[in-house]
C-alpha cells in the first residue's frame, strides 16, 4: 500500500501502457500537460466548469483538472491526442471551432456522444454538451457538427 510521498502509477494512456511517478497532489491535467507533453487538454477554470480539460476515464468524459493522477492507476485514459483528424471533418465544416481553446474538450465530449447515439433517446445534444463552455461559437457550430455526424446512425429528423 503506497503510503509515501511519491506514487508510481501505471495506466493505459491513449491505448498504450504507461508508468509514471507522481506526487499525491498532482492533478491528471498537469501530469498530462507538463510531465507527458500532451498539451491538448487545457486549463480554463480549474474547477470543473469549463470542460476544456475533458478526457475519457474508462471511456466516459471527465474533467482532468478534478482527477488526482494517482487515482487513474489501472484505468484507461484517452486524450484529445487519440482522436484522428479524419473524424473531425463535420466539425470543421460546421464551424465548431473558432479560437480553439475550448475545442479539445468539446471534441472529446462530441466524439463520445457520436459513438453513443443511443444517448439521444433520453438526452438532447445541448444537455450533453453543457459541460463544455465555449465563448466563440454560440454552440450552433458545435451542435451542427455533432448532429451531422450522428445522421448516419441516428434519424435526426424523427428523434423524439
Amino acid at each position: 500500500m503506497p503510503d509515501s510521498n511519491n506514487i508510481n502509477v501505471e495506466f493505459t494512456l491513449n491505448g498504450n501502457p504507461i508508468s509514471i511517478d507522481v506526487a499525491p497532489r498532482d492533478r491528471l491535467l498537469d501530469t498530462l500537460r507538463y510531465a507527458l507533453d500532451l498539451t491538448g487538454a487545457k486549463e480554463g477554470c480549474g474547477e470543473g466548469e469549463c470542460g476544456a480539460c475533458t478526457v475519457y476515464l474508462d471511456g466516459v468524459p471527465a474533467n482532468s483538472c478534478l482527477i488526482p493522477t494517482y487515482q487513474v492507476s489501472g484505468r484507461a485514459i484517452d486524450t484529445i491526442e487519440s482522436i484522428p483528424a479524419d473524424a473531425l471533418s463535420d466539425m470543421l465544416a460546421s464551424g465548431a471551432t473558432q479560437c480553439g481553446a475550448c475545442t479539445p474538450g468539446v471534441v472529446m465530449t462530441a466524439c463520445w456522444l457520436k459513438r453513443h447515439p443511443e444517448l439521444l433517446k433520453t438526452h438532447t445534444v445541448r444537455e450533453l454538451m453543457a459541460g463544455n463552455l465555449c465563448r466563440c461559437t454560440g454552440y450552433d457550430g458545435i451542435i451542427d457538427g455533432i448532429t451531422d455526424g450522428c445522421q448516419s446512425n441516428y434519424d435526426r429528423g424523427n428523434a423524439s
Binding site: 470543473g48 470542460g51 475533458t54 476515464l57 466516459v60 468524459p61 471527465a62 474533467n63 478534478l66 482527477i67 465530449t109 438526452h123 444537455e127 450533453l128 453543457a130 459541460g131 463544455n132
Partner: peptide, 12 residues
C-alpha cells in the same frame, strides 16, 4: 443526477 454539473462531473 442530470442537474449535477455536467456529464464530466456526473461521471465522477
Amino acid at each position: 443526477a442530470r442537474q449535477v454539473g455536467s456529464v464530466q462531473i456526473q461521471s465522477r
